[in-house]
Amino acid sequence: MEQTLELLSLSPPGWGANLLRGLAASIQIALGAFGFGLIIGFFGAMGKLYGSPWVRDLLEVYTTVVRAVPELVLILILYYVGTDILNNIAGAMGRGPVEINGIAAGIWVLGIVQGAYSTEILRGAIRAIPPGQTEAARAYGMPRALMARRVTIPAMTAFAIPGLANLWLIATKDTALLAVVGFSELTLETRQAAQTTRAYFTFFLAAGFLYLMVTLFSGVIFARIEKWARRGQPSHRGG
């Protein structure tokens, strides 16, 4: 027991600080990817609902492919493709290779994956808005951008929250996959600590506990957001 505490202590020779550093990296990547995914998702949903047939078909291909191919494979493809593209652009501009920050790369690859799921969730949420609300806005002659900001986004938020909460949890857990490509996040830090000290159970359980805390804490936050987003709505349970 004492030995375990020593291994997990925050100052070296303990590895607690490494785990927390990994956790911070994981959360940063998850937040970035979730946000990036939301942006893709918003435009994706708009494209699927109001875009030209071409746009709709292309988006359909995007969401289908991303949702059918394992994240691990997508991560590898996007990682290599992303760095190749960046380097080619830099090369064409006569610059040297671009420094690729692990966190940025993680956000890029997971964001693209998240974007596909976001697209579907937001599309569903927009369609769930009672049509009268958008019709009223249009009747007032509201410009499209203003309508999106004032009517569509606030109204769809309540419908989108449960799906997005789930998606956020997927984002936090998917960061673990980046360990396989050697990004320093919680799972890789855990594994390095476990391999060096041979205390596999201790470290994997500790990391599991950290992930679980993130999950449970997120659950509380999202419940609050949902309550806030549903303010003023008739109290029916749906979504």
Partner: peptide, 23 residues
């Protein structure tokens, strides 16, 4: 269900394989 859904599968796999392997 909460624990399984709240932690990454990769971590679960490694816990079982390497954790038990070290036991």
């Amino acid at each position: 269900c909460t624990v399984i859904r709240g932690t990454p599968l990769l971590l679960q796999i490694w816990l079982l394989y390497y954790g038990l392997g070290s036991l």
